[in-house]
Every structure is written in structure tokens, then in C-alpha cells.
């Protein structure tokens, strides 16, 4: 990105100015979610959505609905030596906690959600929504107590329960019933990324091991 005022060049992933008068400055990162529209609008019925530009939409220049499938075959550009176990365009959920980076292959998240883990010394978990697309991560320590979450079967929308108190939690990380009702889990930022790209910006990343489960 380039800013009009100083002409500095900014790296999109990090928000850092890499060239120009503002070199070394970093934009403050804003917590964001990457969700399906269905999930977002259920949570935020009063929200507002960016409208398409009529000229661009009219001439059919916006990406088609299946554009991500077609991207799977686009060649990659990287100077990193990639782990042989993952293809460059494997979709991963990238998480950084206290400087420790970890990539969770999206397929593993789909299979094992919710995934209990510890990253950078912090107990966290990764969970996919009932749309099987939206991924979120949370810290799983509440009032100094480490919790273990599992999916509550038989509910129409995603409901999690913790093994320690039996409280029930929704996809926003809020306890909706039980002893911890009203508590909000701390959100952890996730980045849906291609493996080669995540590795380029996080060279020391570890990869979540699917294991034998």
C-alpha cells in the first residue's frame, strides 16, 4: 500500500512502512474476524456491509463465488524453503501468541475442532463455526482456571461446553448458561492464509500436527 501524504510503501500483512519517510512505523492492528456472511449477520444484525461499486459489478470484474478454488492452481512466489509435509497453497489458520507462531492446517481444524492447545505459554483453543468455514480462537483460562472445551452434540447452532464447570458457550466465546454464564473468553487473532505466505512472514512457525486422532 502507498499513502498519499508521504508516499511511503506499507506492507499489507504487518501494517509496517517498509520504505519511504515513515519507514519503521507500524499501523496499529485492529482485531478482525473472517467469517461467512451468514455467521456474521446472525451475530451482528445491526451491522453494515460494504456495497459493491456498481461500475465494477456491472462489468463483472469482481471475483466469482468459486474464485478461491481457482486460486489453488496459481503459482506461488516465495524465497522460503517450505516444509515438505504441506503443499504451498495448503490453507492454514495462522495464530501468533507472545511471538510464537503456529499454523493449523484448515483440514485438521475441520476434523478436530475444537482443538485444545498451548501457544507461547498461553492455553488457547481453535474452533470452526457451524458453517464449517468461519474459524475463531480463544484463550481458555477463566479466572485463573484452565478450561477444556468440547462440542455439545445435538444443538442446531454451535454450542461448546467446558469440562470443568459444564457451562455452555457460543461461537462468540460467551458463556450462555451454567456457573460461568456471562463470562467472555478473550479472543485470539487468527489469519486464514496459504501455507507459503504464512511461512514467509513467520519463518519460525511451527505446524500443528494432526496426530493419529
Amino acid at each position: 500500500m502507498r499513502d498519499e501524504e508521504t508516499g511511503s510503501w506499507w506492507q499489507q500483512v504487518s501494517g509496517e512502512a517498509i520504505l519511504g519517510p515513515l519507514k519503521g512505523k507500524r499501523l496499529k492492528s485492529v482485531f478482525h474476524d473472517e467469517l461467512t456472511f451468514a455467521t456474521w449477520k446472525r451475530e451482528k444484525p445491526q451491522g453494515r456491509v460494504l456495497k459493491p461499486d456498481e461500475g465494477v459489478a456491472g462489468s463483472g470484474q469482481y471475483a466469482k463465488a468459486n474464485w478461491e478454488e481457482r486460486m489453488a492452481n496459481v503459482p506461488v512466489a516465495t524465497s522460503q524453503v517450505l516444509d515438505q509435509s504441506l503443499k504451498p497453497r495448503t490453507l492454514v489458520v495462522g495464530i501468533t501468541v507472545n511471538g510464537a507462531a503456529k499454523a493449523y492446517p484448515f483440514d485438521a481444524v475441520l476434523k478436530q475442532s475444537p482443538i485444545m492447545d498451548d501457544l507461547g505459554g498461553t492455553p488457547i483453543f481453535v474452533v470452526v463455526g457451524d458453517d464449517k468455514r468461519s474459524v475463531r480462537a480463544f484463550e481458555r483460562t477463566v479466572d485463573g482456571r484452565k478450561l477444556e472445551f468440547f462440542l455439545k452434540p445435538g444443538s442446531s447452532q454451535l454450542v461448546l461446553a467446558d469440562a470443568e464447570t459444564g457451562s455452555e458457550w457460543d461461537f462468540t466465546g460467551k458463556a450462555i448458561s451454567g456457573p460461568l454464564s456471562g463470562q467472555q473468553l478473550k479472543k485470539v487473532a487468527v489469519l486464514n492464509d496459504y501455507w507459503f505466505d504464512w511461512k514467509a512472514y513467520n519463518p519460525k512457525t511451527i505446524v500443528y500436527d494432526l496426530g493419529g486422532r
Binding site: 461467512t36 453494515r48 460494504l50 474464485w67 468455514r133
Partner: peptide, 27 residues
């Protein structure tokens, strides 16, 4: 103009929620 299965980037500040559909953002 957004399908239910489309991905959006979503943020919230002081109770104001905004979503940016990825298909538009990719352009």
C-alpha cells in the same frame, strides 16, 4: 449482493459493526 456463504472481514468498534466482503476486497 452478498451470499450467505461469502466470506467477510468483520470488525467492531464501540458497538459499531462493519463487514467487508472478501470478493470486493480482492478487487
Amino acid at each position: 449482493f452478498v451470499d450467505d456463504s461469502d466470506i467477510v472481514l468483520a470488525i467492531e468498534f464501540k458497538g459499531e459493526a462493519a463487514a467487508y466482503p472478501v470478493r470486493q476486497m480482492a478487487y
